[in-house]
Amino acid sequence: MPNETTVASIIINDYDRVLAEWLKVQTAEGVKRTDLVSGKESEQQSRELLSAMAKAMPKEATDDDLDLAEAGWEPVRDALEDIAENRTQRGVSTTEMGWFIGALKQPLFKMLQSELGEKPRVLMREIWNATRLIDQISLHAIETLVSKREAIIERQRAEMTEVAAPVVKIWDSIVTVPLIGTLDSFRAQTVMENLLDAIVQWEAEVAIIDITGVSTVDTMVAQHLLKTASAVRLMGAECVICGISPKIAQTVVNLGVELPNIVTRVDLESGLAYAFDRLGVQVGRGSAGA
């Protein structure tokens, strides 16, 4: 049946008409987000995807054996990758991405019907094939879009944990780590690792944890702080927790959280004063300041 009209033959032979119809439907369905993706870009992307399909179709099955993972579909996958990359950056939603591809169904069905209107059985089969093809492509597109977004989230999270727990040496044998934001298990672990490594690196005797910037202190956060303090002590250093504001003090007591054997101070200043006292460091105004 090489001469019979199929989805593939329509896309390959009537390429320009399919494209024109597709773009028309995109506009009609309102999936052309001209605020995010310009009409020209959208047209360009549609053209690339359709030509990639036309390239792949003679080589690969478009019937029930259709499998987008086959090598022949690579240009289509690459085109989807590029489109997803571009649209992720513009903030296009998954629904819009799905509709963008799904809009291809209408022109295909229309053309199949006009060609195969007299052969209902063949028409049904081809419509089924077209549906499968478009659905698979649009699912793959959504999948790609989501994975691109997840990659962005993962990267941002890694960057955040990196910058969020800087351990600094503020005096001989004193290190400090200012905590900002929320303290979940993952970040608490990172903070602990960084702090313990810093203690070894700088031979610190006192480690100051400043929680002024921590938004909420609940039982979980207290647990993490307790663990960190215990680990610091096992390393042979002493842990001071600073930034216990009146509000935090109230919450901690009302929650029934106990911080046994841990030195706590109101602010970094008094924490540092405690550390100086422990190490026998004397700080005073020199003659220049008098």
Partner: peptide
Amino acid sequence: VGMRPAVAMTLV
């Protein structure tokens, strides 16, 4: 003396 960071974390 000399407990490694990883050991301290495990013990905790």
